[in-house]
């Protein structure tokens, strides 16, 4: 059985594009959600959860983008 479905370069570019694309989308969508949450009542624990969750989402997005750049800088 052949190990490869596509060429190795195609495979790694697919991983890079998927990771970079989803990470960029994540930064955008969670920035929007953070802005919405910050407009809410910050004394409400549920709102604070959303703020924290969006901050984590933005960080994860940057982690993804940085990982892709790191990979292609080697």
């Amino acid at each position: 059985m052949n190990n490869e479905l596509v060429s190795h370069d195609t495979y790694w570019w697919f991983i890079s594009l998927l990771t970079g694309g989803v990470a960029t989308y994540w930064i955008g969508i969670d920035s929007y959600r953070l802005k919405k949450a910050l407009a809410g009542d910050r004394a409400d624990p549920a709102i604070r959860d959303r703020i924290f969750g969006s901050l984590v989402g933005i960080v994860v997005g940057f982690v993804g983008v940085a990982g892709v750049l790191l990979h292609h800088s080697r």
Binding site: W26, D49, F52, G53, V56, V60, V63
Partner: peptide, 15 residues
């Protein structure tokens, strides 16, 4: 318990 932060990490974990 709905953890908005953990939802992000679960997606990261899938990766």
């Amino acid at each position: 318990y709905q953890s908005h932060a953990m939802e992000r990490l679960v997606a990261y974990a899938a990766y």
